[in-house]
């Protein structure tokens, strides 16, 4: 049934070269509304580069990007935003020392008045942010004047998703949304992902967590060394097969996790050599 539909975004043979290093090699993908596309792969497999191409931070060296079938380059983050592509980064892409109502509306502030007396409408902003957060199940947020940094990682992630949904995003790219979260919070974020999908958004979920991907994904793509190694739909492959696909980088992933836990227990410093 999805064969006939025109994908919201399709990329065809996209290659990105950084000074001789091929970060993306002839990657083609289709991103449909109302579906969750899981982008799997190890660090350095090209996931971040692909996201940055989709969100307008990088231009592909070659290849075509189509929006609803029409060729449409994405030249800047602003372009991406105008096309309804919203990217949520690992830490929610938010500002820990800003109030929730301010950070929610950065770049799209509701204002009242005119000319030099056009002011940020803090009352409206506060009401909207509390309403949207509550609708996403974060009921302990009752005051828009809270600092973003006082929310938990999952809540910040949810606030960023709520923001994307509120501003009418058509495609939401989530970069490792569950990586830094506990089990319960990760489950909540995944539930919000399902809610976004139900509202008709296309969700691109970048993760190395196969379990999380299998829980919500409709469509899966595995990247290895910048190339697409597999592209399949829900139910076409078992958990073991997916893990095996990524296994080329399994040893790396373990080491990476080890380093990561070392970092978090040593105030963010990498091990000294």
């Amino acid at each position: 049934m999805t064969e006939k539909r025109i994908p919201y975004i399709s990329i065809e043979n996209v290659t990105k070269v950084f000074g001789g290093y091929v970060a993306l090699n002839e990657v083609s993908l289709e991103i449909h509304q109302g579906e969750v596309l899981c982008l799997l792969g190890d660090n350095g497999a090209g996931k971040s580069t692909l996201i940055k191409v989709l969100s307008g931070f990088h231009q592909p060296s070659s290849g075509i990007i189509r929006i609803e079938g029409r060729e449409q380059p994405i030249r800047s983050p602003r372009d991406a935003a105008d096309l309804g592509i919203s990217t949520v980064h690992q830490f929610g892409g938010t500002f820990p020392l800003m109030t929730l109502e301010r950070s929610f509306f950065v770049g799209r502030e509701p204002t009242k008045g005119w000319g030099p007396f056009e002011v940020f409408d803090s009352k409206t902003a506060g009401e909207i942010v509390v309403r949207e957060m509550q609708a996403m199940g974060i009921t302990r947020v009752t005051d828009g004047k809270r600092l973003v940094g006082s929310l938990s990682g999952g809540e910040r992630q949810v606030s960023a998703i709520a923001r994307a949904v509120y501003f009418g995003a058509k495609v939401m790219i989530l970069d490792e949304p569950t990586a830094a979260l506990g089990v319960k919070e990760a489950a909540h974020v995944l539930r919000i992902v399902m809610e976004a999908k139900r509202r008709g958004l296309a969700v691109v979920l970048v993760t190395h967590n196969v379990t999380h991907a299998m829980t919500v994904g409709d469509h899966f793509a595995v990247l290895i060394h910048g190339a697409k190694a597999a592209d399949f739909r829900r139910g076409e492959k078992t958990r073991e097969e997916i893990t095996d696909l990524m296994a080329g980088g399994e040893a790396m992933a373990e080491l990476e996790a080890e380093l990561e836990s070392y970092r978090s227990s040593h105030d963010g410093h990498p091990p000294q050599r």
């Binding site: 602003r78 935003a81 980064h89 892409g93 938010t94 500002f95 820990p96 770049g107």
Partner: peptide, 12 residues
């Protein structure tokens, strides 16, 4: 001041 990249992405 909070995060230039995120600010840019948000359209500032």
């Amino acid at each position: 001041g909070g995060d230039e990249t995120s600010a840019r992405a948000a359209g500032v």
